[in-house]
Design a protein around this nucleic acid. Structure first.
Lengths: 297, 297
DNA sequence: GCTCTTATTCAAAAATTTTCACCATGTTGA
DNA sequence: TCAACATGGTGAAAATTTTTGAATAAGAGC
């Protein structure tokens, strides 16, 4: 059975801060003898002297100092915990882990994050980036609470819920110096196979990985991020489909050229997904917020 | 003012482990209503529902679950702290940080460490290695509690106390293929200057660094450890003084050759040193243990 | 030597927790 | 469906713990 108590630790802290039993009693709104009593009781319970009373004024023993210092840490943590309890009781998650799919640019999410904090939501956000099946994987493994911009169909599991976000359209892009840049349009999709494709690595760890817009047997350069894919395509290392919002700037200034394909990659529906069991205020806030949101341009 | 208490947290833990208020009461050796009372009081204090009583059996709310889980961590830490208090009260340090000077081999210290644990000393040992002024530096900075094998004179500060350990003698060694290997003995110390010396880096961070057995202006290879120095000398990268116990094996099998010097490096007294203010049982144990100890061979 | 501050002691008073007996409600199984 | 059972809840009395306040002792400062 534990002999410590927060009350005793707090008293110890006040005694040390004020420097005397008497002043501590004033701060604690007790009578001095109550402090003496409580200290003696603690010492008795622990079977350890906390104060050295040989001198005029009581002085902490080494054990007492340890108890004081470590006790302060415990008190701090306990106070913090009380705050977290209150927050949880009001329905706010302590933190909300969001997986942002690489198909969406960070600067699209940013204004929403701004709004979240402007609304004085107390929940800490932890945003990570996932690619393709990675979002579902993270959700399934419980590494995140919510996935924004996950692509493809919702895995048919009662574990997940989702709502539509918006559609994404793709354009096939190559660098101006790329052989396909001068090919006659529309390019037969079979012709693509002869050229290297650039793809973003799937971050999934367990779920079967997905490929998107890749033809089997095609030479593929796998890069770790969407930005790397764009850069690689600009550098002429290969071709590939890009979401319209990522393609826009490089197409405009001529770093990339879009090519019409005879059987282009179809429009994909993006969703917001979460574990069905999740219910906090922060999650709800995001669901509402993203219900009628505009796609990036 | 803190509203939590270890008692309440413990009760929560037991309720969760047993699965019912009633069984928890049995384990806590209370009457069931005492548990009910305590839970209600906690909920009132925190102004937060811990249990959802709508169903038949009371069920933890999300806030309750958080309190339970985090509370367990607090309880664990508190119990650990009680143990540490008891240990400290008995005079045993929680841990003793020892700086072993690089002049001494680890396998010399090892039997002493063995004996320490065989004596059931509860103090954790944290042994680090220091070179030259590094031991004093670590002691002065409070990075260690005790230095074993520190060389040179005790800095004249009331901060430190020390006792003699034993003397160390040095032999000047070079590799057989080294030019000095064939030099006539005794070698004039001035002649050494023409050859590269191998020295162990001083680990001191603040105190003025020391050099030992080095002639100013001499080309020097500084290596990070005693083993590196030995290896470097065997590789013929330079010459240098080695403590007899480090030189013994390489001299015996011919990997090194000792040379007599006209003005050899003098015998050095090693000491055991500690901060004068330190007083724990573990420190005392080591002082006693090392009082009449044999030097390594 | 006198006074101030500090910590302690002790019996009484106050506050709290626990107990005990009893109630209400959901579950189980015939 | 209904009795038997287990679980959690209630309130007044009892037990326990904590606080109080006045008296005491003892070092520090002048």
């Amino acid at each position: 059975m534990l002999k410590l108590s927060f009350e005793a630790l707090e008293m110890l802290d006040v005694i040390d801060r004020t420097g005397s039993f008497g002043r501590a009693a004033v701060l604690l709104e007790r009578v001095p003898s109550a402090v003496t009593y409580a200290v003696r009781k603690l010492e008795e319970d622990l079977d350890t002297l906390i104060f050295d009373r040989r001198g005029y004024r009581a002085k902490l023993t080494p054990a007492g100092r340890l108890l004081l210092e470590q006790g302060r840490l415990l008190l701090e943590r306990a106070a913090e915990l009380e705050g977290e309890i209150a927050q949880t009781a009001k329905g706010w998650e302590l933190d909300l882990r969001i997986a942002l799919d690489a198909i969406l640019p960070w600067n699209w999410l940013q204004p929403h994050v701004d709004a979240f904090y402007k609304d004085a939501c107390p929940t800490r956000l932890r945003i990570s980036e996932e690619t393709l099946a990675g979002s579902w994987d993270a959700l399934a493994e419980g590494r995140v609470d919510m996935a924004i911009g996950a692509t493809g169909d919702v895995p048919n599991s009662a574990l997940f819920s989702s709502q539509p976000l918006f559609d994404v359209e793709f354009v096939y892009c190559v660098a101006p110096k790329h052989p396909l840049a001068r090919a006659a349009e529309p390019i037969a999709s079979a012709a693509l196979q002869a050229h290297r494709a650039v793809a973003v690595a799937d971050t999934a760890r367990n779920l079967p990985m997905r490929t998107t817009g890749l033809l089997s047997g095609q030479d593929t350069l796998v890069v770790p991020s969407m930005q790397a894919k764009i850069d690689a395509q600009i550098a002429g290392l290969g071709g590939g489909y890009l979401a319209t919002w990522f393609a826009k700037a490089p197409l405009k200034d001529g770093r990339l050229i879009d090519k019409r394909i005879d059987a282009p990659k179809s429009t994909t529906k993006l969703v917001v997904a979460w574990r069905s069991s999740a219910h906090g205020n922060a999650l709800t806030w995001w669901r509402e917020r993203l219900r009628d949101t505009k796609r990036p341009r």
